[in-house]
Each structure stands twice: as structure tokens, then as C-alpha cells.
Amino acid sequence: MDDLALSLTGVSKTYGNFRAVNNLSFAVKRGTICGFLGPNGAGKTSTVRMILGLSEPTSGEIRVLGGASDKVLDRIGFMPEERGLYRKMTPIDVIVFLAGLKGVPAGVARRRGAEMLEAQGLGPFMNKQIRSLSKGMSQKVQLISCLVHEPELVILDEPFSGLDPVNQQGLEEVIRELARRGATVLFSTHVMQHAERLCEKVVLLAKGQKVFEGTLKEARSAAPRHLDLEGDLAESDLRTLPGIVSVIDLGEAEEGAHLWRCGLEKGRAPNEALKAAFLKGLDVRRFEAREPTLHDAFIVLTGGDARQADATPSEPMRPEHA
């Protein structure tokens, strides 16, 4: 059996003169949680749609669960960025209907759906019309609809948008559980913390091109480490320390002290700068070597586009023909 749940090779997508995705290649192993990250307009939704067979790539090849996506639709679970359910149907009927489209017999889907609704605290709302549910409840129903057929590959487009912190945490747990039972999860998000907590692998997209593919550790290593220094320190003194490339004023600290964040040159350890500071007799009262976060890596890797990250929750739909 193919070890890869998903592979894209040289995939491009153009709409008229606009190139939404440019020569994109990446692969996701089975049983992996992979974050698909990128600022607005990076081409995430276009890529997801090509993976699902909703639109054809202009060039390149996509293999999903070892074949073409239209042949394995029953084994894929998909939750779109813009949630959609039949408002006049009940949650259980919607779940049974959508599971039916994935080949699950009605009885099995009804049993599984009821269990999942109960587990999500939606048991009492099982037979109420969806239009009477809150947005958060509807999103849970949507998620259950996407998972009830026990898919091997789950694609979640911005799954955390619109959820409160408690439900976000619940969704993270659901994603981990999916991975535990062997499913592959590909999810797009703007919120780096979710990706940081969940992903073993990330693919970073900017302006339709892949700018990074690898593990979280590898992603973080793309960003410089930081050294936070607290004390009665002057910016000019800090800039003379070895390996320091940037100094940011983080504001007043306790007892007249000041907090500074010093960016380290790539590959330089903080010890060197710290040692030099002590040797110079600088008033360092507290120090902390800070590992780069995925957010830092995201900003470095996406350059100017990264400013959009976290600022806007969703990627707009783009017409097929611009």
C-alpha cells in the first residue's frame, strides 16, 4: 500500500491570467497531522479544491490515497471554510444523508451520528431543525458529518474559525483522536498556535508557491532565536554584542529596569552574546533564551505576506475564471 496519503507534484492552477497556485509539490504520509499554512490569497483553498477534485489543476499531478481523488471521495472527509448544511433538516438526518453519499448504510450512519452528537453534547438537539441551532452547534454538526464515515483522509479548511476557545480545544482533541486511529489530517489555518500544538508537519504557502515543507522543528529553525534581556540596559550597548542582529524594546520592567528582545544571527547560540554582556559589565538582571515559534517562522518565511497572518480569519473565494 502507498505510504503517502497525499502527494502533489508540480501542481499549478491559473484563472485567466492569474496564477493562484504555482508549481506546488508536497506529500503527506498516512496517519500524519499536517498543517497547511499561508496568508490570505496564498492559494490554500484553491489547492484544497484541487485535492478534492472540485477543480482541475492547470498542470501537475495529484494523488490522493493512492489514486485520483474522484475515485476515493468516499474515503475523504471534508469540512469547507464556508460551512453549509440544510437549514430545514435535522442534524441526524443531515448526517445520515451525507454519510449515505459516502457509502455508509443509513442504519450505521444513524447509530454513529447519534453517538457522535451525544459525545459533542448535541443529543437533545438531534431532531431539531439546524436553523434553530447556534453557529457553534452547527459547526459541530458539520464536523460530525465530515467524520461519520470514518474517512482515511480528513481535510479541514480553516476549522477553528468561529469557534470559542472551549470548542477550539475540543476540536484539537478530535483531530488528535483522528490521528491516533490512523487517519491523515490536512488542515489549513491562520492561527499558528493550533498548528504548533497539533502538527507534525507543516506546508507553508505564499503567493501560490510553497515556501516551506517540513517538521515543526525544521520550520522553527528557519527563524532566528531570541535572547530576552532585562535590566538597566541601553540599546546601543546591546547592538555591540556578538551575534545580535536586531533589538526590540519590549517596555518597562520592574524597579526601573527595561526589557529588550535581541534577535540572534542564524546559527548563533545565545551564550556568546550573554557572556559578552557580563564581561562588559552590563546590568543584566534577568535573561531568557527564547526558541523561535511557528509564528516567527511564518513571518520570516512568508516575508511581507505574513503581516496578513492572524489578522483575517478566512481566505476569500476566488472565481474559477477571473
Binding site: 478534492l52 471534508f78 448544511l85 453519499l101
Partner: peptide
């Protein structure tokens, strides 16, 4: 109705 309630995309991801 399906287009405005965004169900169409879900359906197209499930069937031809």
C-alpha cells in the same frame, strides 16, 4: 437555497 447556505460545495466534495 443550497448555494446560499453553502451546501453545494459539501455535496460536490462528496459526489459527482
Amino acid at each position: 437555497e443550497e448555494k446560499s447556505s453553502k451546501v453545494l460545495e459539501v455535496l460536490l466534495a462528496s459526489t459527482s
